[in-house]
């Protein structure tokens, strides 16, 4: 891509200024209060929320004979962090795709921020302020990191065919966008990589880039599909802080995640899906004690070391007061129950 020389400017003065102004954040995570009182009435599947940002009704999606998603009613609370959990194949990502217009449901309707989203194409959903990331990270490899970021900004004049031919029309806006991009990159500690191809980033850095890029569009609702998958523990900590920051800035977050520690730590509300349906809802602590959730997803020994569960090592090592023999006995009893 040597022919596009004029597009690749040297880092401007404003870019450096942005980098200096935002010093690296202290690494000690601050304690934050969880949002409570989000729902009306008893926390059950489909419970009404005080201030929902998304209300979905009767959303169904089938692939041939398989019903991937069959949600009667669900509401996502505004200004809170909601986790969507459930076993593999529960329809979490399919629901994500439906809500963001990447897939079309067989039936159902849903409303985002007061306007119906049924049949609205994905790019318009995003323009309305509901932006998503992907389970398999989609960094645009042969664009530089900063180009990736600038692509996220909404309402760019220079993105129209005829306008793009007259740089005077969009240059100022483009510089502004670049400044904002650099501020965000600094926050996500990617500023040193700004002029590298996104393909040169590590998996975790790509996750960060994708999230930062989504934020460039200044969304109201950020939908993250497994933001922690394949990210090392140290980076997880900073990603968690970034997600909590989003809430502080007034955004709503909906995320799919399998890491239960993370869900417990940051989610204000948890929606549990299994076989396409919402089987439980509630605050993280309550939901994780719900027998339906334990059965469908968590498993009876979620807090026990894997070595104990599989019987590779015995007493005392995991410190959870359960032994391999005990588990085996329980398992056998369960099997016998089923046979009856």
């Amino acid at each position: 891509m040597s022919g596009n020389a004029p597009g690749k400017k040297k880092p401007t003065a404003s870019r450096k200024k942005a980098a200096v102004a935002e010093a690296p954040r202290p690494s000690a995570p601050k304690q934050r209060e969880k949002s409570t009182g989000l729902h009306i009435g008893e926390a059950a599947p489909g419970v009404a929320k005080v201030d929902p940002i998304i209300v979905a009704d009767g959303v169904r999606r089938t692939f041939g004979g398989l019903t991937a998603v069959d949600v009667e009613h669900v509401e996502i609370p505004r200004g809170a962090i909601t986790a969507l959990i459930g076993p593999n194949g529960a329809g979490k990502t399919t629901l994500f795709n439906l809500l963001t217009g990447f897939d079309k449901p067989d039936a159902g309707s849903w409303v985002f921020d007061g306007s119906s989203l049924s049949g609205v194409p994905a790019f318009k959903v995003s323009r309305m302020g509901q932006v998503r990331t992907f389970q398999l990270t989609k960094a645009l490899g042969l664009l530089t990191v900063v180009e990736n970021m600038k692509l996220g900004a909404k309402g760019q004049k220079g993105e129209k065919f005829w306008h793009s031919l007259v740089p005077a029309l969009w240059r100022a806006q483009d510089d502004e966008i670049e400044e904002r991009a650099m501020r965000l990159l600094t926050k996500f500690k990617l500023d040193a990589k700004a002029d590298d191809f996104a393909a040169s980033l590590s998996g975790g850095q790509r996750k960060l880039l994708e999230m930062a890029r989504a934020l460039m569009s200044e969304p109201q609702l950020v939908m993250l599909d497994e933001p922690m998958a394949g990210v090392n523990p140290a980076l997880t900590q900073s990603l968690l802080d970034h997600i909590l920051d989003l809430k502080d800035e007034g955004m709503t977050v909906l995320f799919v995640e399998h890491d239960m520690h993370m869900v417990r730590h940051i989610a204000d509300w948890v929606i549990v899906m299994a076989e396409g349906r919402v089987v439980a809802e509630g605050d993280p602590v309550t939901v994780m004690k719900n027998p339906a959730v334990v059965d469908a997803y968590l498993g009876a020994h979620q807090d026990v070391d894997l070595g104990v569960v599989t019987g590779r090592y015995g007493d005392g090592k995991a410190g959870a007061g359960v032994t391999a023999a005990q588990i085996e006995a329980e398992g056998r009893a369960e099997l016998e129950d089923e046979e009856k």
Partner: peptide, 27 residues
């Protein structure tokens, strides 16, 4: 040359890399 150096060209190159990602960004 002018087009590819503009934000329009940036969107196009983004589509080449992954069109779903670009769609998710509202293009």
């Amino acid at each position: 040359w002018r087009l590819m150096a503009s934000p329009w060209g940036r969107v196009l190159k983004g589509i080449r890399e992954d069109e779903d990602a670009v769609r998710a960004l509202g293009k």
